[in-house]
């Protein structure tokens, strides 16, 4: 049973490293269309891997796991509302 856990950890490590390398290569080759969206979603994927594998969120009961999830959702709200409101106002820089 210890092996299975070890496998999860090492597997997660492999996934993290390869996504990181992939990300850098794709950017430097300049073939990504929507930079911000791409990078943010990569970061979210990596975070989920870390949370599940290394932070053992997978072992937590859902009543505990709801705490970080709520926080994540609220964060999306804060960011998206602030950004939309800003993009839509009439800037007159300078």
């Amino acid at each position: 049973m210890g092996e299975r856990d070890a496998l999860v950890y090492v597997g997660a490590w492999g996934a993290l490293i390869s996504t990181a390398i992939l990300e850098v290569q794709l950017i430097l080759l300049d073939i990504v269309q929507n930079l911000t969206a791409f990078l943010l979603s990569m970061a979210v994927i990596q975070s989920v891997i870390i949370a599940y594998a290394y932070q053992h969120l997978r072992e937590e009961k859902s009543s505990t796991a709801i705490m970080p999830f709520t926080s994540f959702i609220m964060l999306l709200v804060l960011v998206s509302a602030a950004i939309t409101s800003v993009l839509a106002c009439t800037p007159y820089l300078g």
């Binding site: 705490m67 970080p68 709520t70 964060l75 804060l78 960011v79 602030a82 800003v86 800037p91």
Partner: peptide, 26 residues
């Protein structure tokens, strides 16, 4: 986990500061 979630929010707010400033930068 309750504490970590507030940390998430702390860093999240910092990141949103970045996104905010960035989306307003020419």
């Amino acid at each position: 986990w309750t504490f970590i979630s507030s940390e998430v929010f702390l860093f999240g707010s910092l990141i949103s500061v970045y996104l905010f400033i960035r989306s307003r930068s020419l």
